[in-house]
Amino acid sequence: MLALKERNNQAFGFLYDNYAGALYSIIKQIITENNELASDVLQEVFINIWRKIETYDQTKGRLFTWMLNIARNASIDMLRSKGYQNSQKNQELPDNVYKGGVSQITQQNVDNIGLKKVLEKLKPEHRVLVELAYFKGFTHEEIADMMSIPLGTVKTRIRNALLQLREYLK
């Protein structure tokens, strides 16, 4: 850890070799349609890890958790960027997806990978909330608004979904 904070080249190479694949998998679960942009995000994520390594606080969690959240945030930022929206213009608009409801999202993600694979085991009404919150980066309020369900219900369902997730990860 010290070697990383001292910006040790070797240590960083080691970090990349051991975690890039796992983070790339998360990135691709969020940026599903564009491999080039996903690989750009991966690059950006590791440059950010390098630059921000001294802000990592190990009392707040494991290094992987920290990196995972950097990867997730960068992916969601990309998802919302104009460039990405334009590249997706031929695809369905996000709004349509939500209007289509739970089943459509479920359908769309059948062949997904990683955590999404674990999510498949969840109840559909739980799963879509986690999808929206975790992989699309919507806040609980946005989701409550979108789905027309009370904020408290969104929170409870997401929490319950995450608890089930914990069971599957054991």
């Binding site: 983070l23 790339y24 491999n35 991966l42 955590l115 694979k117």
Partner: peptide, 19 residues
Amino acid sequence: EEGIEASAKEQALPTPPEV
């Protein structure tokens, strides 16, 4: 956290070499 990490590593994808 360890569960998440293990799961993510299991699902690791090959990264583009030029990255």
